[in-house]
Design a protein around this nucleic acid. Structure first.
Lengths: 354, 354
DNA sequence: GTTGGCACTCTGATGCGCCGACTGCTAGCG
DNA sequence: CGCTAGCAGTCGGCGCATCAGAGTGCCAAC
């Protein structure tokens, strides 16, 4: 039960070393390699005994009888949770992240995409970014514009940029003043609110006060609904070609599974959705690692995902993620993802519409 | 010289059959296969003689001495230009295209992306779509909005949707009326123009008339410049995982080259840019096919690209493209791309902001 | 010009043997 | 009791030879 007892100091060191070595070489690790490359102070025979025990405890597996050991999900898990040393960003990484955000876009969607490019480049894996739910954006401004006597343009601006815009054609003539008055009323009523606090009933109330026509009311409802729309959260991914470097993806079926996941926004989002939900509840900024079967997807049983939330003001939470083989440099990737998330949050707060 | 003489009827038929058979089977085609599967009326020995001649003429090549023939670039070219029969869309394809556009988005960027998903799904290859240059969009509306005494929001709406929006912070206080008057002046001056006709000088002229401050003038210039921005044309691609099915991409290096091209918008755009330029000059709506080395990219020497323009009103021209192995069903893909381009153009005209 | 026949070539699959890497086990040592 | 040296055993991967199959080119005959 108690892992402290289960893993004495030497076992822990050997396990850590096996994981470390396997991450670096992609080759199963044997007892001789361990005694030669690392200063264990015991003979390979002793290491063999330890390896056998670690295997029976479930931390290591053998691909076949006469091969070295590779870590199991549990082995990676223990390594990540208790054995590895946390890393911090290198000077070079810090600089590259800073440079990237210095000239980053103001549009949420563009920033998300640029961030995935950055993170995939730095990490050498597939990077994913999910934008904060639009529901948590702050309402900034709504404007109904008179285009012609029967057409108008409705624009909702939120802290994420232009939340929605749409052109409407009406069956009856519309007065420009009427639109302006309605805009002003909506703005003063909703100013300072978060989008999820603005429902159809609130809109109806304002419209009723001004005696707005049903047609225009529908238009306003519609554009607000679009601005809140949460069923297709903004998401971006980049760096799939990085995965080709990893020997575990030379198998075409695995590669195919990954590519399918990347191209289908839905599955990609599902991959991160539970972390996002957990994050919204827990509200810590820590990176999380999910390993192999913990991802609950057969195609990803040989992959790991590092996720880290980023904060958009004091409201929204988005997610950055790195997807790669289980054999990934966890310490470095956690540092990269955390650093990027922090910079991303800072950037978004800087450019946020005040 | 004269290809009509160079290729008598029988040679033409044999060449067409070899290409057709190779496209379907991905296996080099031999003389026996030809005589057995197709009714040639001559023996395999005769076919062998013909094949040898077609090879010396440059239409076919042999992967190795004791294999069948496969088409060369020239062989495919002749097949596409003169031998194959044009195909038309199947009922099922027509329906799927129609259904897709019936519920398509209003935003240009979203439509482009949805179109690539549709076209990659239908074609089983990689689909690419380039949006019309933003320069050719019609100016619709500009609005400067007062947010607070020192901040404002500028929005430019074009026929492509919201062309640009940006929040500005000013060093001096700004009057809401001033912004409204400037908006009105700009709208009446620029109404009906195409974006490329609106330069900084035009903006300066309007600002001068109203005595607008330099700071606000810069803001207006900036947002118009963003709305016209053409250096990064909107582009989307989808369906890379389809290519994994093709045996020619089981080679990881080739796959890598393709994935890199797809993830880098720049190279992807370059692939289509010359066709786009040619199209702007020629103004025909025909599909074009480029085969193997005609693409002028070593990584793509075993690929072909079908491109077809689509028209956005009477102004802009965008491009749809399908990228796949040279061994692609040209007739079907040309029909699919053309049909999709037509529907896409129709859809864009329907939802265009009037 | 066409055809049947034949010798020849080359690929890809299959099977075999060997090498190397690693293990588990056992006996012995401190 | 833990550690170690040594050894037999196991298994994957690699190189090599073999073989069947597919296809060609050529030639002599029709």
């Amino acid at each position: 039960m108690n892992e402290k007892l289960e893993l004495d100091k030497r076992k822990a060191f050997i396990l850590a070393t096996v994981v470390y070595e396997y991450i670096n070489t992609a080759e199963p690790v044997g007892s001789v390699t361990l005694t030669q490359k690392y200063n264990l102070g015991v003979s390979s025979a002793t290491v063999r005994n330890e390896l056998a025990e670690l295997e029976s405890l479930g931390y290591l597996v053998q691909p076949h009888t006469s091969a070295g050991r590779i870590p199991s999900d549990a082995g990676y898990r223990t390594y990540v949770d208790r054995l590895m040393q946390p890393e911090s960003l290198t000077k070079d990484d810090t600089r590259r992240i800073r440079d990237q955000f210095r000239e980053a876009s103001q549009e949420l969607g563009d920033v998300i995409e640029q961030t995935t490019r950055l993170l995939s480049g730095l990490s050498g894996n597939l990077a994913i970014a999910v934008a904060p739910s639009r529901d948590t954006h702050a309402f900034k401004h709504v404007q109904l514009l008179w285009l012609s006597s029967r057409t108008g343009l409705a624009i909702v601006v939120t802290s994420g940029g232009v939340g929605a815009q749409r052109v409407f054609e009406w069956t009856t003539e519309v007065n420009a003043d009427e639109l302006t008055r309605l805009s002003n009323a909506l703005n003063s009523r909703f100013g300072g609110r978060v989008m999820e606090e603005i429902g159809p009933a609130d809109i109806d109330a304002v419209c009723a006060e001004l005696g707005t026509s049903a047609e225009i009311r529908e238009a306003v409802r519609g554009v607000f609904a679009t601005a809140r729309q949460t069923d297709e959260p903004e998401i971006a991914a980049a760096g799939a070609q990085n995965l080709l470097d990893q020997p575990e993806f030379h198998d075409l079926r695995k590669l195919r599974a990954i590519l399918r996941i990347v191209e289908e926004q839905r599955t990609l989002y599902d991959l991160i959705a539970d972390e996002l939900a957990a994050e919204n509840a827990a509200a810590t900024d820590a990176a999380h690692v999910r390993i192999g079967h913990e991802l609950r997807a057969d195609e990803l049983s040989e992959c790991s995902v590092v996720t880290v939330p980023y904060r958009f003001g004091d409201r929204g939470v988005g997610m950055l993620a790195i997807l790669g083989p289980r054999r990934m440099p966890y310490g470095r990737l956690i540092a990269l993802a955390s650093g990027t998330a922090r910079s991303l949050g800072d950037h978004l707060n800087d450019v946020e519409i005040r």
